[in-house]
Amino acid sequence: MDFAFFLGCTIPLKQPNLEKAFRDVCSILGINLKEMAGASCCPEPVSLQSLNIDTWLTLGARNLAIAEKMGMDVMTICSGCYETLKTVSVLLGEDPGHKAKINDILKKIKYEYRGDINVLHMVELFSQPQWLDKIKQSLVKPLDDFTFAVHYGCHLIRPSKIMRFDHPEKPERIDTILKTLGARTINFATKLECCGYCARLQDEIGEKLVEDKMTELCELEEDVDALIAVCPACVSQYDRKEKLIARRTGKEMNIPVLYLPEIMAVALGVALEDLNLTQRSVKPDKLIEKLTT
């Protein structure tokens, strides 16, 4: 299966080891990723949409037009990219007049956005029955002894009238993928709380949200091996803030944060040393030890 692979910015430029894990998983499963030459930032939904909606829509449509020319659906690996590209496709699909206006601009730089491809998030693909089967068949190291907490984040599932992807208040597609790897996932009160990364104006909002979630995970009766997220913003937010809070409060939390493809890669047999799992603030030493014994 071929996809136009939309890289975005944060993963390829700041956390390329996450991109590596995703590419490894795809090559094991037989998913072909085609590079989108000339693609820009999605663009970022927080600031650009806020300052000028038409700039946001036009830049997004330009990226989609590149994939249309390749004749493939778009695969995203960041929830921000997914939100932008999917929202652009839905809004312009519902408003042909506005689409024409955007195309008037795009035509001048020789692009055209027709609106005939789909935008997918990696979770959407991996959780389809045929890919779950494929994952099961390809398991090298089932994660039977592992318990994970899942962080869905906001932009993957909401607003559901646009994302149309999973239940907005009771999502389960990431849990399903992890269970297919053999792991257990837990339910917890703050499971669907925002990571706070996009609340840019006040840092304390993010800190409080991270502290609440991590404190709850630490106080649970069973040990949680890692928090699993599917967006680079959520991953870095929890990882960095968790360390900061530990330093400030003296509370040792030590729950590592992994990106879903990283743990998938482990289960599918990618060597640990190829994944650079220690390149983060909260080192997953215990997890690595458990994986190697």
């Binding site: 930032c41 663009p43 970022e44 600031s47 650009l48 806020s50 300052l51 840019r200």
Partner: peptide, 16 residues
């Protein structure tokens, strides 16, 4: 906090 990333995208094509 909002204007800086918009300028970064203009100058780099990426938000980084």
């Amino acid at each position: 906090e909002y204007s800086s990333s918009v300028i970064t995208i203009l100058e780099n094509g990426f938000v980084i």
